[in-house]
Design a protein around this nucleic acid. Structure first.
Lengths: 101, 101
DNA sequence: CTTGTAATTAGCGTTTTTCCTAATTAGTCT
DNA sequence: AGACTAATTAGGAAAAACGCTAATTACAAG
């Protein structure tokens, strides 16, 4: 859980998550969108992967990254617990009004 | 918002928030609970205050820190938006089942 | 005004993070 | 196999985060 918040603490990594939310993307495609060197993006992606926030899988010639929604939900739940949502936290997290979950 | 996630990325600071959630506390009282030097805790508290996550106000001889719930809620909303809750985010955040809000 | 307590600021060394370029691995395709 | 592309690993430099001790400020109260 610690690694999750650490991963979320960098703006670029949060933007990557926002992008991946729309659609899974390849490493190079992500790097190209961010004005950083490719190896730098690899580092960020590794941080996100180690935190469990994304998963990576080979797709032909490239490697596709996608968001791991459940870990994102856990992060939200943890934050809510921190702010006093207490026992309602997980219930509430799963009850995002119109979600395809 | 960036500072908020930065502040949340340190375990000690999250624990402080959890403590402050129960009741407002003085700086020294917090420091005493954490096996770190007092000045170190001051640094953490400053980070939390700069992020807007807590407020500080003098109370007689000591300085009392308390959680700023609204900024905590904003953080949750931001996270949820990141994970795809989209426009429902704030509505959901304010609808924590049995909360005294 | 002086003493005492609460808390912050200064200064410093260590560790971690971040980002880069160059080199390397992994897999594809002819 | 050999050439090509996608991505990661190596190595290193610069910046930021952490946590400490010592010094200082801020109040309160005798």
């Amino acid at each position: 859980m610690n690694e999750v918040f650490k991963a979320l603490s960098h703006p670029t990594r949060r933007k990557v998550l926002a992008m991946l939310r729309e659609r899974p993307m390849a490493s190079g495609e992500i790097a190209a969108a961010f004005d950083v060197a490719w190896p730098t993006m690899t580092t960020h992606l590794t941080a996100l992967k180690d935190a469990g926030l994304v998963t990576a899988e080979r797709e032909g010639t490239s490697i596709r990254y996608r968001v791991n929604a459940s870990v994102m939900e856990e992060a939200v739940a943890a934050l809510m617990e921190l702010m006093g949502a207490g026992k309602d936290a997980e219930a509430t997290t799963n009850t995002v009004k119109g979600e395809k979950s």
